[in-house]
Amino acid sequence: MSTLHTVNKSPFERDSLSSCIRLAVKGSAILLIEDGVFGAMAGTDHSDMVQAAMKDASVYVLGPDLAARGMSEDRVIDGIQIIDYSGFVNLTAECNNVQSWL
């Protein structure tokens, strides 16, 4: 895989997720962590943007950060993969580099 992009900010607060989606090449991986996990939820003002991005990028969300915030895995957008820290590590090893969107 090419680049792993990490996003740790809520799409309601900052433009980190939209910037990441705009500037990620096709075939990238996007991992939502910390407050970034709110971007993984279905039925929000940003769900359509994320679903459109999933045509070109694989999207992942960090499960422990979802759980900490009381966000149910059932309400995560279909097709987003829920991973733990070891999955995060695996993604960084599989991708060529890692780019943080703070």
Binding site: N8, I33, E34, D35, P64, D84, Y85, S86, F88, V89, N90, T92, A93
Partner: peptide, 19 residues
């Protein structure tokens, strides 16, 4: 900020995986 916690968890997981 959560940044330092996340970095710690990441480091522990990476070490556990043999990195």
């Amino acid at each position: 900020h959560q940044a330092s916690d996340t970095a710690l968890h990441f480091c522990k997981a990476a070490l556990e995986a043999g990195h």
